[in-house]
Nucleic acid binder design. Structure first.
Lengths: 253, 253
DNA sequence: GTTGATTTTAAACGCTTGTTTAATACAATT
DNA sequence: AATTGTATTAAACAAGCGTTTAAAATCAAC
């Protein structure tokens, strides 16, 4: 309302004061540092929570890295946990946009879709780089769910699993019961997850050299896909023959 | 050095004084409670570290449950970390003895061996009951290795993985390179591991009812085995045909 | 310039952590 | 009985944590 009069003069004030005028969230660092405290906290808290976990991450470290006072988290978010919940929401958005599923047309084969799905999951799980903190954080929630996990399941996991389920339905047909399909989805996801959660142990077991030689993302995707596709196709075949057999024994008796 | 003289008389002292004389570690509770403080701490610390993790487990809780003074851990083990390392050693021994591999004879089939291996791994990972704390604790080390992990790898993981590797070699033959076999071993282990590390998320996704209906240990073992065996056999077959093809194209060109 | 609300700050609070300490209790040896 | 070395205890310690507070600074509006 105060804009209504003496408006022209105040534009300069708005622009220079830096209050709530941070139009772009990324890019220019000098401009960033003039953004408001709330934004700075959100930007900094993600990587810290990702690296340390909720418990071991300290408000003091976050505030120091955001270059704000220690009381700022409580002032803007209430407490540490509320900040964490906001960060998880941010991580979900970034995790999806970071490694999205490709667009499919009506004539994309089921196998290609499954390849895309596995590729996306591996990239999300094992991805490194600037935004990988979001995936690390989400993985923490999977391994040790907090209040935030329910939100992730509804908005992220269930939709993603449903896609895999429909692909498997395409391959396996309608006869195979839903829970068998879901077991297969879990078996595929399990393999992708393994190389993230057990990465430390795998490296210790294989040694750096061997791991670098045979366990990069592309090789893992290829192995997981080949391994899983063979298993799925066998399931279909075995189900077909078992139906035939029971049908035959029915007729025979 | 003080043993060198007046040795005979001191045997009685050693034996009666209660130092290092706790012959049986399990069973009789009355005897247990008369054991020395060190033993009581070791007995109590395992479950606590398993449930809370090293960081969140407090010396005060451990000492309270062991019914000893808070200073006892520092007196007997130096500090909290030394106690933890001792507990990990204990966990390794108990983890193996809790769910051992069955004995195999020369005419045990490779498939049966693989079934036993998967069964053992699932039991160790998902086992519940009195001694399951040891497996929980070991899994914590896999997910977030500390100093103690190297010891576990040498004494526990590598031998166990080697067994699976030799079983797969039996099935696949000599032609398939070692790193492909290892990838398969990891894929199998990954599936077993998934239902432990993601148990919370799986339950949240499926709901208690569905999980209880289709995801008990026996059903999981059966699924993992069927899924993996199909994949392995396909690998063998594909490798054979690809060798034949390259041989044929070699002859053809 | 003054006012009144909002934001920022340094300091302190209350609590928990692992560890240390100094006094005490105990049992074996002299 | 006195001594000696070990074991146990309650209390204190120092450091770190999340949070609160009350004063100071900032800024739009009059």
């Amino acid at each position: 309302m105060w804009i209504s009069e003496d408006c022209i003069g105040n534009f300069a004030i708005i622009f220079l004061s830096g209050v709530d005028t941070c139009a772009t969230k990324s890019g220019n660092k000098d401009f960033m540092s003039s953004c408001n405290v709330r934004e700075r906290l959100l930007d900094v808290a993600g990587p810290v929570f990702s690296e340390k976990g909720f418990e071991k991450a300290t408000v003091r470290e976050i505030c120091q890295k955001a270059d704000v006072n220690v009381a700022s988290i409580n002032y803007y978010f209430g407490d540490k946990e509320q900040l964490y919940l906001e960060v998880i929401r941010l991580a979900k958005q970034m995790g999806v946009s970071r490694a999205p599923l490709p667009e499919w047309t009506s004539d994309t084969s089921a196998e290609q879709k499954l390849r895309d799905w596995v590729t996306t999951l591996v990239r999300r799980m094992l991805g490194t780089g600037e935004l990988s903190w979001s995936n690390h954080l989400i993985m923490r929630e999977v391994l040790r769910p907090t209040k935030a996990c329910e939100h992730l399941i509804q908005e992220l996991f269930r939709p993603f699993v449903n896609i895999a389920d429909s692909i498997l339905q395409e391959i396996l047909g309608e006869e195979i019961p839903e829970y068998r399909r879901m077991q297969c989805v879990f078996s595929i996801a399990a393999q992708c997850q393994f190389y993230r959660v057990s990465a430390g142990m795998v490296t210790l077991m294989l040694g750096q050299k061997e791991k670098a030689a045979h366990y990069n993302n592309d090789q893992l995707i290829e192995h997981i896909l080949q391994f899983s596709l063979a298993a799925i196709k066998n399931l279909k075949q075995e189900f077909a023959t078992s139906v035939m057999e029971s049908s035959a024994s029915l007729h025979g008796s």
